[in-house]
């Protein structure tokens, strides 16, 4: 069975060949059918460009892109069986919600009664049955987001692309929509490709994820793999803000002379701990406290559960970690 989406050494460079902006640079990627795939990375790392390569709004300057085994590198967007939920939703302001949702069917020439029935079905799916006659301008941000979702699903795409669809929503709505998106994806069995720069969102929703950095994929794997076994310093730092330890410090903790990472939540206060330093900051997080100490010129952060006896800022403290928490990275 072919993969839903496959990138073979795909690059997308902008600007003059002498000094190109390498938005996407030699990316190899396989997204399995039915997966919830997240693309995670900092601003400007090439996530949106990757998504646009799949939808067809950008074409690769090198490499090829296959959707369900078919090379689509030269297929225009309107002929790809892929739909997008745009970051700004891009709802048509002159059409009501029903016409917006039915748009994909209208341009295919489906009759009015039939396409409205289908649109209502999609609106029910996103719990907006009663809103068909409203204009997009009369909806809240969360409702608009659902309309955009219903509109993209009406064509029954094989792959749904979502570019930071929850970026504009407040925290509470965001969490509700995360659950809803996830369950929708499981019910419909459509492959979702989801762009975000929020690591919590990526980790909690995706079956597998790719971490982007500077147009390249830094690591690809399941959330657990990426979180627990970061391959590079960048991934360790970006996903879950790990403590990144230089080779000397790793060695002093009994590891090899390589870079390593330590999760803040795997550290705890211990009078006999191997990491000793001055407490430089104390922050209350709600669910616990974040304590930072400086040792050998290196800041190490620990997240301590509420109720722990906290050290004074400026005092000396010792930290230790569970065996196996120290993750050695391959990167030199």
């Amino acid at each position: 069975m072919p993969a839903a989406v496959e990138f073979r050494s795909v690059s997308r460079h902008f600007g003059p060949a002498s000094a190109p902006v390498k938005a996407v640079d030699g990316v190899d990627l396989t997204i399995a059918e039915g997966a919830f795939f997240a693309m995670l990375g900092p601003s400007g790392s090439g996530k949106t460009t990757c998504l646009r390569l799949i939808s067809g709004f950008e074409s690769p300057t090198a490499g090829e892109i296959c959707i369900f085994g078919e090379n689509v590198s030269n297929t225009p967007p309107h002929l790809r069986n892929v739909n997008t939920v745009f970051q700004d939703y891009a709802l048509f302001p002159h059409m009501n919600v029903r016409d917006n949702v039915a748009y994909g069917l209208m341009v295919k020439g489906m009759g009015r009664a039939q396409r409205y029935a289908k649109a209502e079905e999609m609106l029910a799916l996103v719990h907006l049955d009663a809103y068909g006659s409203r204009k997009p301008g009369q909806l809240s941000g969360g409702q608009r987001q659902r309309v955009a979702l219903a509109r993209a699903l009406v064509n029954e795409p094989k792959v749904l692309l979502l570019d930071e669809p929850l970026g504009a929503l407040d925290l509470k709505l965001r969490e509700a929509m995360q659950d809803e998106l996830k369950s929708l994806q499981q019910r419909l069995g459509i492959t979702f490709v989801f762009v975000t720069h929020d690591q919590h969102e990526a980790l909690s929703m995706a079956d597998s994820l790719a971490v982007f950095n500077d147009g390249k994929i830094a690591q690809i794997g399941t959330p657990a793999q990426v979180y627990a076994q970061p391959k590079t310093r960048f991934v360790a730092d970006f996903v879950g803000s790990s403590n990144v330890l230089p080779p000397a410090l790793t060695q002093s903790l009994g590891g090899p002379a390589k870079w390593s990472s330590l999760r803040p939540e795997s550290l705890h206060l211990d009078p006999a701990g191997p990491l000793q330093g001055t407490v430089t900051s104390l922050r209350y997080l709600g669910s616990g406290h974040r304590v930072a100490i400086t040792t050998q010129g290196q800041d190490i952060a620990a997240i301590l559960p509420s109720g722990t006896q906290l050290p004074e800022p400026g005092s000396e403290a010792r930290l230790s970690f569970a065996p196996g928490a120290l993750h050695i990275m391959d990167e030199a």
């Binding site: 892929v82 739909n83 997008t84 745009f86 700004d88 994909g104 341009v107 064509n155």
Partner: peptide, 15 residues
């Protein structure tokens, strides 16, 4: 007219 609106139309299959 934002570009994304024209892209949304194309994306949904419009010529």
């Amino acid at each position: 007219v934002p570009t994304s609106m024209l892209e949304a139309s194309q994306d949904l299959g419009a010529t």
